[in-house]
């Protein structure tokens, strides 16, 4: 087995196991930490596929920024395993069942195709920053600018939502 394949299986197992732990761990903080592990595994997958830029962006944006936000919120709300609301056993069973059947259907629909991924060096240069940047700032410059406006509005929105309403303080 080539080391690439070993890495693939290892990362896949890691990603799936920790994804399950995200769903099934009782303590929300543990869920967040397992989700970070999932993102790290996915980052590893990106590196195998030689998508360096996405790998590092995934690490900085998802694992480094978004998950810290989640952790912040959970820590401030002081959520722990005891105060965690639980659904009834039957609801959970039904959820797992329906999820499993969805997965079966999707796999059945998508299983027949003959593509493959190779990790030869010369064949994988599109994931490099140089190439991605060139396309991003020429062909996709308008969506890029629009996304910056999106960010600005998200920022304003978050501040407006998070700010304590002065009328509620009085009451």
């Amino acid at each position: 087995m080539h080391i690439n394949e070993i890495l693939f299986w290892f990362l896949t197992a890691l990603a799936l196991f920790s994804a399950m732990m995200v769903v099934f761990s009782k303590n929300p903080v543990h869920s967040v930490l397992w989700l970070i592990v999932v993102f790290m595994a996915i980052t590893g997958h990106y590196i195998i596929m030689n998508a360096q830029f996405l790998a590092i962006v995934n690490m900085i944006v998802y694992a480094g920024a978004i998950m810290v936000l989640f952790l912040f919120v959970i820590m401030f709300m002081n959520l722990n395993a005891e105060s965690e609301p639980q659904k009834s056993k039957w609801m959970k069973f039904a959820a797992v069942l329906s999820g499993g059947s969805l997965m079966l259907i999707l796999i059945a629909a998508l299983k027949d195709n003959g593509g493959f991924i190779s990790s030869m060096r010369g064949e994988g240069s599109i994931g490099l920053i140089k190439n991605l940047g060139k396309v991003l700032f020429t062909d996709y410059v308008v969506p890029f600018e629009i996304s910056s406006i999106l960010f600005l509005s998200a920022m304003v929105g978050a501040v407006v939502l998070g700010k304590k309403d002065s009328s509620t303080i009085v009451s």
Partner: peptide
């Protein structure tokens, strides 16, 4: 080294389904 695209499809589907199960089971 060649990895069939199917593996990635299955991985991605599994992750997606786990996400769905999570949405359905948690409150």
């Amino acid at each position: 080294p060649v990895i069939p695209i199917n593996y990635y499809i299955f991985l991605s589907l599994a992750l997606f389904t786990i996400g769905i199960v999570g949405v359905l089971t948690r409150r």
